[in-house]
C-alpha cells in the first residue's frame, strides 16, 4: 500500500472530509456506548434531542458554540501560519480578567461604548498573553507549543490567586468568584429567557472578518505564505517575525474575545470554571473546519451540540458525559486522516 499525491483536489472531497471524520468519531463512541451496555440508538437520540431537538436546545447549543467559534478561529488563524498556539485557554482567561478588572466598576460607560470597550480590552489582554511565546520563538527559537501550554497553567493559577485575593467578591460567601460585571457591560440576550446572547453575533462577525483577512488582504497572503513555507516567504521579502507577531495578536485577541463573551454574556462574573476547556476544544473546532474561518462557525455549532447533547444523554441513559470529549478528540484525529486523503490517494500494491 502506498500514498500518491493527487494532481487535482476535488472540491467535494474537501467538503466531505470532516463529515466522514465525524462519522468515524461517532462510530468509535458507539463502541464505548455498547461497552457501557446502553442502547446506541437511544443514546444518540437523546444526544440529538438535547442538542437540536427544541428551541431551547438550539439556544443552549448556540450559546455553547459562541466561545467555541472564537477559540476555533484563534486556533485556525494561528495554525494557518504554523504558529502552534495551544494557549487558547489561558488567553481566554486573560480576556475574562480584563473584563473583570475594567468592567466591575472601574470604568462606567453607556452600553454602546462599554461593550466595545470591554471587547477591545479583552482582545488586547489575550494578545498580550502571547507576547512572551512570540518573543521566545522568534528570538530564541523556543518552541511555542510548550510555552503556550505551560502558560495556560500559569495563567489559571494567577486567576485563582486573584479570585481568592484582590478580585474576590466579598459577597460571594467564600466562593472564589469575582464581582459581577456592571449592567452596562453585560451583553444583551438574543432570545428572551435563554442563555443565548449577543456574543454569537460577535463570533460570526469575527469569522467573516477573519475570512476577509485571509482571503483578500496582503496580511492574509503573508500569513498563508509563512505557514506553507517560511523560507520562501522570507526570501520573497515577507518578514516572518512581523507576520508571526501579527498572527499571535489576532489569535490571542480572538481567544480573549471568547473570555469576554463568557464573562459578560453568559456568566456575568468570573469564576475558575468559566471555561470547561474551550481553548483546547477550539483546536478541534479549527481542525474540523480545515482551518477555514467560515467553516469554523459550522464545526463550532456541531461540537457545541455534541457537548450540550451529551449532557442530556448522560442524564437520560446514564452514560458519563466525558463521551463528548471522546467524540471531539476522535474527530480531531480522524479529520487529520480524511483531510490527508483529499490530497493523497491510496494505491494498493
Amino acid at each position: 500500500m502506498r500514498l500518491e499525491l493527487r494532481e487535482e483536489t476535488n472540491f467535494w472531497l474537501v467538503f466531505l472530509a470532516p463529515i466522514v471524520a465525524i462519522a468515524i468519531a461517532l462510530i468509535i463512541a458507539s463502541g464505548l456506548i455498547i461497552w457501557t451496555g446502553k442502547p446506541v440508538g437511544e443514546a444518540y437520540f437523546y444526544l440529538l434531542k438535547g442538542a437540536f431537538g427544541s428551541g431551547f436546545a438550539w439556544t443552549e447549543t448556540l450559546a455553547r458554540a459562541t466561545p467555541l467559534i472564537l477559540t476555533g478561529l484563534a486556533a485556525a488563524v494561528a495554525f494557518r501560519a504554523r504558529f502552534w498556539n495551544i494557549g487558547g485557554e489561558g488567553q481566554l482567561y486573560c480576556g475574562a480578567l480584563a473584563a473583570t478588572w475594567l468592567g466591575t466598576g472601574m470604568v462606567t460607560l453607556p452600553p454602546v461604548l462599554m461593550i466595545p470597550f470591554l471587547f477591545t480590552a479583552g482582545a488586547l489582554a489575550g494578545g498580550l498573553a502571547l507576547l512572551l511565546p512570540v518573543y521566545l520563538k522568534t528570538k530564541l527559537k523556543v518552541d511555542e507549543v510548550v510555552t503556550t501550554l505551560l502558560l495556560n497553567f500559569i495563567i489559571l493559577l494567577f486567576v485563582n490567586y486573584l479570585l481568592e485575593g484582590p478580585l474576590k467578591d466579598p459577597m460571594s460567601l467564600g466562593w472564589p468568584q469575582a464581582m459581577p460585571i456592571i449592567d452596562q457591560g453585560l451583553l444583551p440576550k438574543l432570545v428572551e429567557k435563554s442563555r443565548l446572547h449577543f456574543g454569537l453575533i460577535v463570533g460570526i462577525a469575527s469569522a467573516v472578518m477573519v475570512w476577509v483577512l485571509m482571503r483578500f488582504t496582503i496580511w492574509g497572503y503573508e500569513i498563508r505564505a509563512v505557514g506553507h513555507n517560511p523560507e520562501a516567504a522570507a526570501f520573497a521579502g515577507i518578514s516572518i517575525n512581523r507576520t508571526v507577531l501579527r498572527v499571535a495578536l489576532i489569535s490571542g485577541g480572538l481567544a480573549g474575545f471568547a473570555g469576554i463573551t463568557e464573562v459578560a454574556g453568559l456568566k456575568g462574573y468570573l469564576t475558575l470554571d468559566l471555561s470547561p476547556g474551550f481553548g483546547y476544544a477550539g483546536i478541534a473546532v479549527a481542525m474540523l473546519a480545515n482551518l477555514r474561518p467560515l467553516g469554523v462557525i459550522v464545526s463550532a455549532i456541531f461540537l457545541a451540540g455534541i457537548y450540550v447533547g451529551a449532557d442530556t444523554m448522560s442524564r437520560a441513559v446514564n452514560i458519563p458525559n466525558y463521551i463528548a470529549d471522546v467524540i471531539v478528540a476522535a474527530s480531531v484525529l480522524s479529520v487529520l486522516v480524511s483531510l490527508m486523503l483529499t490530497q493523497y490517494r491510496v494505491r494498493l500494491r
Binding site: 464505548l32 495551544i86 483546547y280 483546536i283 478541534a284 481542525m287 458519563p320 466525558y322 463521551i323 470529549d325 471522546v326 471531539v328 478528540a329 476522535a330 480531531v332 484525529l333 487529520l336
Partner: peptide
Amino acid sequence: IGITMLASALSFF
C-alpha cells in the same frame, strides 16, 4: 494534541 485529548477523555470516561 489529538492523542492527548483522546487519551485524557478516554481515561475520564
